[in-house]
Structure formats: C-alpha cells, structure tokens
C-alpha cells in the first residue's frame, strides 16, 4: 500500500474537519476521494502531501511517515492544487525548467525534461509564451506537467478539472489516463461522480469528515440503487408526512421528497401504496439518474429500496 491512513483526525479549534478517516491506496491505482464542498477533501490532500499536520492518526505515504519524515515523503510525491500554481510572468518552458532545477537536475537535463513534458502535454507551440496568455485548460496542463518533472510515485490532484469547460475537462482526463499507463499512483479529489467514475479504480466517499462509503465504482453504484424518485406534493405537511411514512430526503422549498430507488416498477408500487394507505396525496412522480446528491442521500440517510 503506497498510501496508508489510519484514524486521521484534524481539528481547528472546536471545528472537526476530519473525524477518523481510514484509507488505503494500492501502488499504481487511481484513487478517488469524492465529496461535496466542506467534506474535508482538500484538508486530507494537504495532510498527505505534508503541507498540513494531522491532529492525530497515522499517515504513511510511499512507506514514510508524513509527520516524522516529511522530506522523504516530498521526494516521492507531487501536488497539483485546486488553483494552478504557475508563474504568469514566466513562459511555460521557464516554469518547467525552474521546477526541474529545484529538483536538482543539471541545466541541460532540466531543459530536456521541459521539452519532453511540453511535447507530452501539447504545449510546444505555447512553450515560449508567458503563461498569462494561456487558456484555463493550458494552465492546468502546465500545472500537471510541473508536477511530473521529477517522476513522482504518487500524484495528488485536488479537483483537477473544477472550473474547466467540457472540452478542456476531457483533455485533462486524457492526460490523467495517460499517467495511469505509466504506472504512477494517482490520488484525486473531485465533486463530480462522473469524473470519479471515469478515472478511479476505487472511490471513497467523504461526508463531514467521515468516510461514508468505500469501494469500486460499480459497487458504489449498486449501493446507490441507480435512480431517484422525486415525489411532488402540494403542501409542506404532506411532504413531511410522506417522509415519515416512506423515508427519503425532503426538499422543503420545492415541496419534493427524494427517494433512492432501484428504478423497478415494484419499488414504485410499494412507495405509492404506502402513501395511499396513509391518505397522502401525491401530485406527480418523476425519476432521474443519480447525481452526487443522490449518492449522499442514499448513503447518509440510510434509505434503501
């Protein structure tokens, strides 16, 4: 296991950000940490990449303890944060050569490494332009290229595609998929189920600093069920009585009750029958594909079909 986390806790004063997180990541795999804003994803990545200290718990990366041997951990990892850490006033090539020199490559070797990475990330034409003229997607690719200069064993990617347009997002996904083929371990965080689904072998769902699910993408999907039933009502008390009767998550302002479902007719019958027996009138029923919200509704509310 190249990343091992046991009982990780992080508190700021009385605020508990991480509350006993356990993670294991196999070398060469792609690991996705999925969760909404504020779940503790970035804090986890900051602790794993030695930028922040755990309040308690054991964290080992590449076999080294992040607290006792941070320098050794830094030697095997690289971090690509949420905001591209690139110098706007330097060219793409200068940014890459700078990182290579910081990693103690001799000048000619640093230049060669920069050339290779520019080629690989399709930045050759823009290599000698200042980064401030780059598009959002190009900045992210340069940022990722800078992370790869020293050939790290583990790459931490914090929300690598947030804020990108769909085309740049796909390009970024391809770049990440290429990395996987070279055998590098990837630890990424994301808010998008689709992204985790597409890239990750294993996913851990984080909610309010706790792991709420851990498994392969397929296993998680079957756990969610698949679809969500939205039951529409005409007043607030009906929604609440329905929730008391069949469970689910109340969207009070829209007078909707969301229920995780396996999409079968039997489940729909069961729900509607229960409501009729309790004299609760349903206006309308709709069903849709699961979103990350639904995964959380299903996993945190404990409502199953």
């Amino acid at each position: 296991m190249i990343v091992e986390v046991e009982g990780l806790r992080k508190t700021y004063g009385s605020a508990v950000v991480l509350d006993g997180v356990d993670l294991k990541v196999a070398e060469g795999s792609v690991f996705g940490l999925l969760g909404p804003n504020g779940a503790g994803k970035t804090t986890t990545i900051r602790i794993l990449s030695t930028l922040s200290r755990a309040t308690s718990g054991e964290v080992r990366v590449g076999g080294f303890d992040v607290r006792r041997e941070p320098a050794k951990v830094r030697g095997v990892i690289s971090l690509t944060g949420q905001y591209a850490a690139v110098d706007d006033e330097q060219t793409g090539r200068e940014n890459l050569v700078m990182v290579a020199r910081l990693m103690r490559l001799a000048r000619p070797a640093a230049r060669r490494r920069a050339d290779e990475l520019l080629e690989r990330f399709d930045l050759v034409d823009a290599a000698d332009r200042r980064v401030k003229t780059y598009s959002g997607g190009m900045r992210r690719r340069l940022d990722l290229a800078m992370s790869l200069v020293a050939g790290p064993r583990v790459i931490f990617l914090d929300e690598p595609t947030s804020g990108l347009d769909p085309v740049s997002r796909t390009t970024m996904w391809d770049a990440i998929a290429d990395l996987v083929r070279t055998g590098t371990t990837i630890f990424l965080t994301t808010q998008y189920l689709e992204e985790a689904d597409r890239l990750a072998d294993r996913i851990v769902l984080l909610s309010k600093g706790k792991v709420v699910a851990d498994g392969t993408t397929d296993a998680l999907k079957s756990q969610v069920g698949g679809d969500r039933l939205d039951l529409h009502f005409d007043d607030r008390s009906a929604v609440e009585r329905a929730a008391a009767c069949v469970g689910g998550h109340v969207f009070a302002e829209r007078l909707v009750l969301g229920i995780a479902s396996d999409g079968s007719a039997a489940h729909l019958h069961h729900v509607l029958d229960s409501l009729r027996q309790n004299d609760i009138a349903v206006l309308r029923v709709s069903s849709h594909r699961p979103t990350l919200d639904d995964v959380f509704i299903a996993l945190t509310a404990g409502v199953a079909a």
Binding site: L51, L79, G81
Partner: peptide
Amino acid sequence: RKGMIDRLRSLPI
C-alpha cells in the same frame, strides 16, 4: 496567495 508556496513546499526543498 496563489498557491505557489504550496507547490514549493511540497517539493523536497
């Protein structure tokens, strides 16, 4: 502010 410091701090320097 821009996160450059995080990049540099995660390098072995």
